[in-house]
Design a protein around this nucleic acid. Structure first.
Length: 579
DNA sequence: GGGCCAGGCGCG
DNA sequence: AAAGCGCGCCTGGCCC
């Protein structure tokens, strides 16, 4: 029936949504004008997306990546680029760069991510009808309207090129988060079990504690002279310690370690083992590792600074003890890469501090600071710089601050300015334009109350404390957030490089990585400034080179020719264990 | 029994 | 218990 337009331009964007319950797609030209619309069957969607991707490589626009991309990946379809409306809405609504008023204040696009739905992928296209959980709308006309608002907010912004970079990077993150879940982190459950057995004792058959944990508990109770002491209840343990003469104010490891008493060594041992059991013991293994993969839910943009969060499985808190359980499939290798001192390097670039950049160039940044004579030792350099970025005012870090300000006035000026803005109730932005939230109403009320004539000393003290707290937050926001942007650019570039590598033969494949990634090197894990790539052994060195090249590319993309380098520690090995 | 909080500790 | 940022998860204890 419907006649095709003769020789239509390839669409720049394809917007996915629903019309009357059916999947529908609107094709948009480079000016954002709709040129074609079609409806698709659920079954036909993946095939059609694959065809259009191969033919036109459009930027796919959707309300929420997990709702679309998880099922596409499960069907073996990868896309190169997307625009994720939910994530970009969150950025554009609050960005100080974006055109004011283009994006509404809180509305349905601010809905929380579909964490629960992600966990049940790939049956997502089955979701429909009035029982669907709340989330950003997927009605095609509403999706198109939101996309138009976002394009407008960017086009009329104070700096369209930066915001375009930011929304592209954020959207790449949305793709990568789904791909990480689809591929999974190769996990050797037997190796994990061996670690647990060695540290805790064999897995108990019935209930009860593993032997070594039970033995540690017995030593603690003996040293306390209290056979019934409760070790897992903080208030009870604290009382037992007091009765035994250990006068601590808390039961934290930090404070206990300063005490001299026979109970301390076994208690610290018990706490360490108990933590391992409850956080990453056999129950964790049973729940989170299946078919040789750990598949956590990554939440892009889940942290206010733009860092990723995770939901379930504690993906971002895997203890280093368990790294040896991260093992490549047979015939494959892991490329483990982390950035050395990412945040100070980012700070050097965003403040154009050539002295700090020079200290960082080609070497350990802290060593470079020592060489410059600003501080005497590497440890002091590290403490001072972390203190500068976190807002330390006292202790060793606070004492070293003046020397750092003298040596690196531009870098220190940038974070000091951010802190002052925050203390004054203002907002700050990252390099690409993600903006901190404004102060809460309670914060603002406390500040104005403290200036009134009848304000008490307590009012003033509280207001000052809250102001300083917020200053430390905004101080760190600009650095942490820009580092997160760099990391997104790094991963996005790396993802493209890995996909450009030749696929391996089927008999060398890793089928558990899913249909899209079975034959290719792929990202398997991400942790703020670290990636793990799972690669066929013969491509592992090339993948390692891609990781390094992508870091350089990310630096250029964000900071152009500014002479800062982003040094990586890169290891190629069977396991993620570092020596 | 579910919801919420604090303490504690893992990660960057 | 942190002086100094950002998280998530577990447990116990308390509330309804």
């Amino acid at each position: 029936m419907a006649e095709r337009m003769p020789q239509p331009d390839p669409p720049s964007w394809i917007v996915l949504g629903r019309t009357d319950g059916a999947v529908a797609a609107a094709l948009l030209d480079a000016d954002g004008v709709e040129t074609e619309r079609r409806t698709l069957t659920r079954a036909g969607l993946a095939v059609w997306v694959a065809e259009r991707e191969a033919a036109d490589a459009p930027r796919w626009v959707w309300n929420d990546a997990p709702q679309w991309y998880a099922a596409l990946l499960a069907s073996g379809v990868r896309v190169g680029r997307c625009h994720d409306l939910r994530l970009c809405h969150a950025i554009l609504r609050t960005s100080a760069l974006a055109a004011a008023g283009a994006i509404q204040e809180a509305d349905e696009w601010d809905a929380a991510p579909f964490v629960g739905a992600v966990a049940s992928a790939p049956a997502l296209f089955e979701l429909e009808g009035p029982s669907r959980s709340a989330g950003p709308p997927d009605d095609l006309d509403e999706v198109l309207a939101e996309f138009g608002r976002q394009r407008d907010a960017i086009a009329r912004s104070a700096d369209p090129s930066r915001l375009r970079l930011l929304v592209a990077a954020e959207s790449a993150g949305a793709l990568i988060a789904e791909e990480l879940r689809a591929a999974g982190l190769p996990w050797d459950a037997a190796a994990h079990d061996r670690v647990l057995a060695e540290l805790l004792g064999e897995r108990p058959a019935g209930g009860g504690l593993p032997a070594k944990l039970a033995a540690a508990a017995a030593r603690v109770r003996e040293a306390l002279g209290d056979p019934a002491a409760s070790l897992d209840s903080q208030p009870k343990l604290l009382r037992s310690l007091h009765r035994a003469g250990v006068l601590v104010e808390s039961t934290s490891r930090w404070e206990l370690a300063e005490q001299k008493h026979p109970v301390i060594p076994p208690l610290l041992e018990y706490k360490k083992l108990s933590r391992l059991l409850s956080a990453n013991g056999w129950a964790w293994l049973d729940e989170w590792v299946a078919d040789g993969r750990f598949r956590p839910v990554f939440v892009p943009g889940g942290v206010v600074t733009g860092r990723w969060a995770s939901s379930g499985g504690g993906a971002l808190q895997l203890p280093r003890q368990l790294r040896e359980a991260v093992r490549a499939d047979p015939g494959w290798k892991l490329v483990v890469a982390d950035v050395a001192q990412l945040e100070p390097r980012v700070l050097a670039a965003m403040s154009s501090d050539t002295a700090l950049a020079a200290a960082a160039r080609g070497r350990d940044l802290y060593a470079g600071i020592v060489e410059s004579g600003a501080v005497p030792s590497r440890q002091e350099a590290k403490i001072a710089l972390l203190g500068a970025m976190y807002g330390a005012t006292t202790g060793e870090s606070g004492r070293l601050m003046p020397r750092l300000r003298r040596a690196y006035p531009r870098a220190m000026g940038l974070v000091d300015d951010a802190a002052r803005t925050g203390e004054d109730g203002g907002v700050v932005s990252t390099w690409l334009g993600r903006t901190s939230p404004p102060p809460s109403e309670a914060w603002a009320a406390a500040q104005s109350q403290a200036t009134e004539a009848e304000a008490s000393g307590a009012d003033e003290t509280r207001a000052r404390r809250w102001a300083r707290d917020r200053g430390r937050f905004t101080r760190n926001f600009v650095v942490q957030g820009t580092a997160a942007e760099w990391a997104l650019a790094w991963m996005a570039d790396l993802r493209t490089r890995l996909h450009a590598m030749p696929p391996v033969a089927d008999d060398a494949a890793a089928p558990r990585s899913g249909p899209v990634f079975a034959n290719r090197p792929h990202l398997a894990f991400f942790l703020h400034d670290e990636v793990i790539v799972h690669a066929p052994a013969e491509l592992a060195d090339a993948a390692a080179e891609a990781v390094t090249d992508a870091a350089a590319a990310a630096g250029r993309l964000l900071f152009g020719d500014f002479p800062v380098d982003f040094r990586l520690d890169v290891h190629v090995a069977e396991s993620a264990l570092k020596d």
